[in-house]
Lab assay of single mutants.
Amino acid sequence: MTEYKLVVVGAGGVGKSALTIQLIQNHFVDEYDPTIEDSYRKQVVIDGETCLLDILDTAGQEEYSAMRDQYMRTGEGFLCVFAINNTKSFEDIHHYREQIKRVKDSEDVPMVLVGNKCDLPSRTVDTKQAQDLARSYGIPFIETSAKTRQGVDDAFYTLVREIRKHKEKMSKDGKKKKKKSKTKCVIM
């Protein structure tokens, strides 16, 4: 069974824990209790493949930012979460993405942009803004509501699919490099 290491990042209060708990335990946590770091595991079937999701729910508070490099190193894919009623959390996505790329030393890291709290009427981040940002990053965008469960499975499952595509691409690139290195030079 394939294991996928997913990391949920975003500013404090955007609903990272609520999304994760909704996926794992099928219930909505409405009281806000700032996370330092929590880890969850769940076995699911995605596109006919049974897999184990190892999900790291991270601290959004700035005082825990020193811990970010460590979990970013171990993560295979990242859910970059903002709240649709919090423009600052949307603007912060850029910083999370840049930090992930720096730590992973790669421009090509599996990510999904997630606009959470889409059940709320007080939207300050337009869907088109988020779609445009995701398009500019070359990553999928999904709106979710941890409260109603809308888009929750889709967000995590899409990230797994992005990781699969990335692994497939990397193995193809690896095979191309191996083929090239088999060419021999004969000096007579």
Rank of each mutant, 00 (worst) to 15 (best):
D47R: 09
L52T: 15
A59G: 13
G48K: 11
V8K: 02
A59M: 02
K42L: 09
I24K: 14
I21R: 04
L6C: 10
I24Y: 15
N26I: 06
D30I: 07
P34S: 04
Y4N: 10
Q61T: 13
T20V: 10
I36A: 01
S17H: 00
G15F: 03
C51R: 10
D33F: 03
Q61V: 09
A18Q: 15
T58S: 11
C51G: 09
G13I: 10
L52D: 14
Q43E: 13
P34D: 03
G10T: 01
A11W: 09
T2K: 14
I55V: 12
I24D: 05
A18G: 13
D33I: 03
A11R: 07
V7A: 11
E62K: 07
E31G: 06
H27F: 15
A18H: 04
H27R: 06
L19Q: 13
N26K: 15
K16V: 02
N26D: 13
D47F: 06
Y32H: 13
G60F: 01
L52K: 14
Q61K: 10
L56N: 12
F28C: 05
R41H: 08
L6F: 11
V29A: 07
V44E: 11
L6P: 06
P34G: 02
T20Y: 02
A11K: 06
Y32S: 04
E31V: 07
C51M: 13
E63R: 05
E3I: 09
Q61D: 15
V9W: 03
A18Y: 01
S39P: 03
E49W: 06
D54Y: 10
I55F: 14
G12Y: 09
Q43G: 12
E31H: 06
D57L: 02
A59D: 02
I24W: 11
T20P: 03
L56Q: 07
G15Y: 00
D54L: 07
T50E: 11
L19M: 11
E62I: 07
P34W: 00
T50W: 07
F28Q: 00
Q43V: 09
G48S: 10
G60D: 04
K42I: 10
D47P: 08
V9C: 13
I24T: 06
